[in-house]
Design a protein around this nucleic acid. Structure first.
Lengths: 338, 338
DNA sequence: TTGAAAGCGCTACCAG
DNA sequence: CTGGTAGCGCTTTCAA
């Protein structure tokens, strides 16, 4: 008996059929007690492990899901990944890592991995849908795909997300309540959906309070640290600079605060800054960052739960699942200087 | 023709054999030109994708690797993951995510996934080896497993790592060169290998400079933020507190600096702090953190390259691959107060 | 250059 | 409750 044992080896060594061994090992409940124990015992003794390719081929399942993000190097996704991984492993699923780097071609590749049996379902944490040139490529109605955190407009996939617009509005309202009137916004990569929602929240809050948005108070960013720095500088080259900045994500907020410090402005005494995401380390930052917190691990977990139910043939939820956010008021916001 | 097309469907629609289709689709170079194009054309028209389970079963390969970390939620691993992912995808391999949460049982599970054909190889970013109760479980000599960042003592697997001891020594020497004499160390979770190396580097540097290590100057931590805070406080309850702290990782260093600030000590004017890892955001921290930088993405890439060559049957390198580190001198270190 | 056919290792159907 | 057996879809001999 050289090499790894197969089901046949166990069967032969015990004088039973492969079918019985398979049944015994899969807890089918169809094997009588004396046999059951003997098979299990033998399998353990021979250190048997079923070959997954053979099983997958036969059962037409991969027992794996694909988790696709825009940028695997972004800490923003960590907790979501953690939630997805935990829920997947609890259900016996493996998690395959996908990284699009914002390349639509790659997204298509990952959809293909669904079709070729690499995975049974996919969690998309990326805001675009693959567009094939040819119309032949039509996504099946009930494809097990769940979108988390992001929004893919016009798609019928279930979404697990937050209300970005409302959360942004709340953040800006906090600044207004502190007495700020000149509030600027460093936005994400418009016209992406999430960035747009957060921008709209800003505009809503400003409008509702009757506050103007002067020329140049809306800067378009890309969620990256150094862009936060750069746009913050731009803001302070305006004739009348803001007294508070609502930044579309924590990373750019860090950059902005860094730059403010470099320029000799103190946060929050002179300038208030508020971020979005509540990154790992945002609380340890100095000053601790005021920001909007979203339950990322829970979003990942929920997305996985929905995906699992879709894989098992059920329909996904009809509407998006909206998770609650919390405004974490910490050390970077204060009333404007008198 | 309902459902996804198989090789047979293409073959029939073209009046050739499945074998020919398979050969044409795999660039075997054994198919003549007229046929070749027709097959490819048909495959594209029918939107054909080969079933991976069937292929894997036949070829006895999974075209996937497993990347196992201690804690998927730790930003420390991000760049490594990025490097691994990039190299894997370039070679046509998928990456499966593993998360041990420091549970030896889980490590064993991941080793099992190698045996059951889930993956062809594994990158271990975790410092322990699974220990089975029974001796039956012996790891094959040439199992395609590469250890990255961490060290698994006594194992024959190739390692891609840095010289933690030398890097730690360099960090402490920097503090000494600035004029510090009372230097404390907040260590990692001793007696783990990496934590031990960094501790040894600290002791070496202190010893070589003839500096004493007073009672309580070595605190045992666990790499977590709040532990950095706690141990920093402990350090300042000593009769003679240090003027500089070498912290075993950036995360605890953030915690320490946070706590120093809370206690009213200014960094680096009163106290110098130096970290290890050069996390994402360490530079944007205030003050920008002086720390030891290791080429994490490159370590991940190298580990993957070695793994790929082992998967293809070659021997791994005989000795560990040691990557260079850089001491990033930034804003948290300065001469001690006079 | 192509075809026929034999499995890879497993599960699930159909009998008994 | 158990055994025999037919494939899952693909690759890869061996022949032609």
């Amino acid at each position: 008996m050289s090499g790894r044992p197969r089901i046949k080896d166990i069967a032969e060594s015990l004088g039973v059929s492969p079918a019985t061994v398979s049944r015994a090992l899969s807890d089918s409940g169809l094997v009588a007690e004396p046999t059951l124990s003997r098979v299990r015992e033998a399998a353990r003794a021979m250190n048997y492990r079923p070959n997954v390719s053979a099983r997958n081929l036969r059962t037409r399942k991969a027992m794996a899901v694909l988790m696709v993000v825009r940028d695997i190097g972004n800490p923003f996704y960590l907790d979501v990944m953690k939630g997805v991984e935990a829920a997947a492993r609890a259900a016996g699923y493996a998690v395959l890592m996908g990284n699009t780097e914002n390349d639509p071609g790659r997204e298509t590749e990952y959809f293909d991995m669904l079709r070729d049996g690499h995975a049974d379902g996919m969690i998309l944490i990326t805001g675009k849908l693959p567009s094939r040139e040819d119309d032949l490529y039509e996504l099946p109605e009930n494809l097990p795909v769940v979108v988390a955190l992001e929004t893919i407009p016009g798609s019928h996939f279930p979404h697990v997300q937050i209300d970005n617009e409302a959360a942004a509005r709340e953040a800006v309202q906090h600044l207004i309540a502190l007495g700020h009137r000149r509030i600027a916004h460093v936005a994400g990569p418009l016209p992406e959906v999430m960035a747009t929602h957060r921008l709209n929240g800003y505009r809503n809050a400003m409008g509702a309070a009757g506050l103007p948005i002067p020329e140049g108070y809306e800067q378009r960013g890309d969620y990256l640290l150094h862009t936060g720095q750069k746009l913050c500088r731009a803001l302070f080259e305006l004739p009348v600079p803001p007294t508070a900045i609502f930044v579309a994500n924590d990373e750019m907020a860090f950059g902005a605060i860094h730059e403010l410090r470099r320029m000799g402005h103190s946060v929050p005494e002179e300038i208030s800054v508020i971020g979005f995401d509540d990154l790992y380390l945002s609380e340890a930052f100095f000053p601790p960052l005021t920001t909007v917190s979203q339950p990322r691990a829970e979003i990942g977990r929920q997305a996985m739960m929905i995906l699992l139910s879709m894989i098992s043939g059920k329909d996904g939820p009809s509407g998006p699942l909206v998770m609650p956010t919390t405004l974490k008021i910490r050390g970077t916001t204060a009333p404007p200087p008198v």
